[in-house]
Design a protein around this nucleic acid. Sequence first.
DNA 1: TGCTATCCCGAAACCGCTTTCGGAATCAAC
DNA 2: GTTGATTCCGAAAGCGGTTTCGGGATAGCA
Lengths: 346, 346
Amino acid sequence: MSTKRITIKDLARHLELTEGTVSRAMNGYADISARTVERVRHAAVELGYKPNQNARCLATGEAEAVAYVIPQNHSSLAEPFVSQLLRGLDESLSRRGWDLLVSHSRSAEDEAEKIQRLVTSGRVSGVVLTRPFKHDNRIKLLQKAGFPFVVHGRCSACSDYSWYDIDNELAIHTAVTHLVELGHSRIAFVGAPLYYNFAFQRLEGYKSGLQTAGLDYDETIVEIAELKDEAGESAAANQLDANHPPTAFVCSSDTQAIGVLAALRTRGLTAGKDVSVIGYDGLRFGRHTNPPLTTMAQPQVQSGRELGDMLLAIIDGDSPAQHQILKRAELVLRSTAGPLRDRNYH
Amino acid sequence: MSTKRITIKDLARHLELTEGTVSRAMNGYADISARTVERVRHAAVELGYKPNQNARCLATGEAEAVAYVIPQNHSSLAEPFVSQLLRGLDESLSRRGWDLLVSHSRSAEDEAEKIQRLVTSGRVSGVVLTRPFKHDNRIKLLQKAGFPFVVHGRCSACSDYSWYDIDNELAIHTAVTHLVELGHSRIAFVGAPLYYNFAFQRLEGYKSGLQTAGLDYDETIVEIAELKDEAGESAAANQLDANHPPTAFVCSSDTQAIGVLAALRTRGLTAGKDVSVIGYDGLRFGRHTNPPLTTMAQPQVQSGRELGDMLLAIIDGDSPAQHQILKRAELVLRSTAGPLRDRNYH
DNA sequence: TGCTATCCCGAAACCGCTTTCGGAATCAAC
DNA sequence: GTTGATTCCGAAAGCGGTTTCGGGATAGCA
């Protein structure tokens, strides 16, 4: 049943040409006559010839594929994020006919080992990393190996590699400012674990937002939580059940924000009226929370596409430091951020 | 900077052995002395040797990778689905050290071409397909090529290939029955486009559920909609604004159900009280809709894992028909399905 | 000691494609 | 009609592994 796979040798014999000639014809070399190129092309589609990628990549030394390293510990709620980014990446790679690998990992050591294998196995020509830590060994590893890579996010020392990032600080600053303009002054911050560099940046944005508004930084209304709904919920619970609860929450992810909304609901509070909430990510699901979630959005499909383009450029020889893109998040106004109530809800 | 990649030749020279011997030692052949195996293994980790996958796969004829073909036109809301399945797949493959490719496509023709390329390029040893159509050319293509594959879902003629599926008919039957037990008799169905085979099956389940309950099938309360929130919303709008609106909705996906919830909210109706809604998929965000969504759940990570195991078995030579798994979905009781109100809400 | 069986390893072919190099044939120019 | 430049293709050497085959060395046994 399995019709034998047809190789370049078959094709060459069929055309009474040499394998080398066929190969050069297929790959657009100049030293092949137009007539021959046409014959080869035609016969190739006729016989359904597709070059064996393993052989091709072995010969050329180019893997014609890249890997996306999926961040560990990500909430399943946040997975549209991953999925959309993959789509964007694939779009970029497809234009060249390259393939996309994904790599999950169970632990940090596992991840290091898998990356090492990706680098040395020759299966991919480059990798894209996500959510760098403040000090990220994966990045060091890739740099030391001289292997092409781009990072979705920056880490502490980001001058000499390629990254694509949202201006986290500015985004949170914007969110805080928005709440301040709505009259809020007691604004809580739900941060992410600080080994993530973006968490650090967002915290900075929170601080600078307060400062711009002339508000004091009060660490008692800052919670550090994982990027999960439950974590957001318990963080909000802490704050809401305290003596002098905040009137607004700025969160580090939509998933956290969803948890905050749940905590409010539990307590009979209405988001956007009694307490304001701003999320981060712009997940589509935010349209359907009750009330719909105001959030800072970053378009993931486009991110993926740009990451792909950057990585390809670097593989082609561009200097990594030459490809650094900083985007800004957009404030998506929905209904969870409203004006401060005259009298508090207590 | 890029420290030269170390090959089997380097390793062999270092050990004063032949490449062939090193290879056999690494791959556990019996004709290598224990001492030599030990020496080789040790030197391999010491020098950081990893075999070049392209060369290896070229020589063995096994790609040591499989591809997941991402369904086109899927709602971005439904993407946790994809992401979780990928995770499960990767878990299965990782146990063997195999890699996972993903392949998106823009159109049906594009998809066919990409699958053709996957088959002939030798880059993967098998593929997993999702959401088969009633008559699915991709499946025919793979069968004709004699290429290993598994399908997440069944199509009309599914006896001679490998599939993993949820009993769609039973699941919807269960949902309908649940609503009937709550007193509902005018139960609308939001179906999926019928070129999907699961859509057909779910419609059958709806009919059989009604029949079991002694209710008549009324096609005026059956809507066919895409698996998206907007589609669910407009489907529900049609029904709710009609003369004799249903008191309950059974949906073909959670995304549709969320749209239905939105339609209800717009009309001042409360899900679970005024009108009941049951979704399908068990996506995590269903916990956070308002009210939380009652739904038929299927565990995606496990699906991915099992699909991976099945595919590997087939690649190893098992007969595809030997690997067919039918699971049943679980009714997850949350809050959108409640008893029929004594008096209608009008 | 001699003969066979076993244990190990080297040698070499091969997987399918790319790419460099060299040269025969055609062409242009004098 | 010789020369030099072009055009186009064949030949062959890899790319980095795997796997089959054969045989030297050692062991087992008579």
